[in-house]
Design a protein around this nucleic acid. Structure first.
Lengths: 142, 142
DNA sequence: GGTCAATTGTTGAGAAGTCAATTAATAGGA
DNA sequence: TCCTATTAATTGACTTCTCAACAATTGACC
């Protein structure tokens, strides 16, 4: 097996390949897309939140946030209302229905992640999440 | 800063967030998308290759491969021809022009990756690529 | 109070990926 | 030899993301 790439160079390839695999598989296993789950999870943790802080927490573009939330609203998972004292911002919150549903999703997600990381030692997880964070910082300025 | 997620659970979030950031930044820095680069790089390493092995090497869907190559062909970067002894397969190869261009892209890519990993020790790189591979294996069955 | 700048969310255009269905060509077995 | 299964590539439908342009609202400062 030919491999002319340095370790450094192939990291990018691995990351991308892994992600391309994760996304559809996560969705098949859990019944919901990873971003959608992330969004709901954030909402689950708070009473009410506006879209821009949600966007920062989930790390995707604000346009994507808008579209996700519109769909979730159409599905009866969340409700949205304008902030009465600042009409630019929109408050989002889970409906009762949404709050119930996410519990099931959470179980599926955990079992998916457990499978993905089943042979990882705690130190490895620590170091992995440290490294991912550092990479993110290193390119944040671009 | 509230953080109710276990290390295990947030790995997924980190991975996704990192990737979402990498893709556009890579493209801005190098002038070419990461997948496109990967494809060209594979072609650079061989004389001629058919699409399905290319697909396995790059880890994206065969439909995506077809579309990428059609564009690269339109841009004069690659040529395609059918295998005369098996008319199902298509051989792809870089044009002279393509071979020249990729050298420049390669330089940009290396400098991007260097920036992203500038504070990583060799052992870390080793361990990171090991872990990414293991994750990929762990979910390969789904 | 009036103007200019910043913030929030929305929308359209474009890139990239998956999946599933389709076409064409080859291979293998009765 | 003929029928069936497999393989390669293509295409269409769909999702998700980014970016850039836009509208509406608010804030700051003269």
């Amino acid at each position: 097996m030919r491999c002319s790439l340095s370790n450094q160079e192939q990291i990018l390839h691995l990351l991308k390949g892994l992600n391309n695999q994760i996304s559809p598989k996560f969705e098949r296993c859990t019944g919901i897309s990873a971003s959608r789950y992330e969004l709901l999870h954030q909402l689950y943790e708070t009473e009410e939140i506006n879209q821009s802080t949600l966007q920062k927490a989930v790390n995707i573009d604000s346009g994507a946030i808008t579209r996700h939330l519109k769909q979730l609203e159409a599905n009866g998972m969340v409700t949205r209302r304008r902030n009465p004292i600042d009409n630019r911002v929109i408050f989002v919150r889970l409906t009762e229905e949404g709050r119930k549903q996410i519990v099931g999703y959470k179980k599926e997600k955990i079992s998916f992640v457990n499978q993905m990381l089943h042979d990882f030692k705690p130190e490895e997880l620590e170091s992995l999440s440290d490294m991912l964070n550092r990479m993110q910082n290193n390119i944040s300025e671009y």
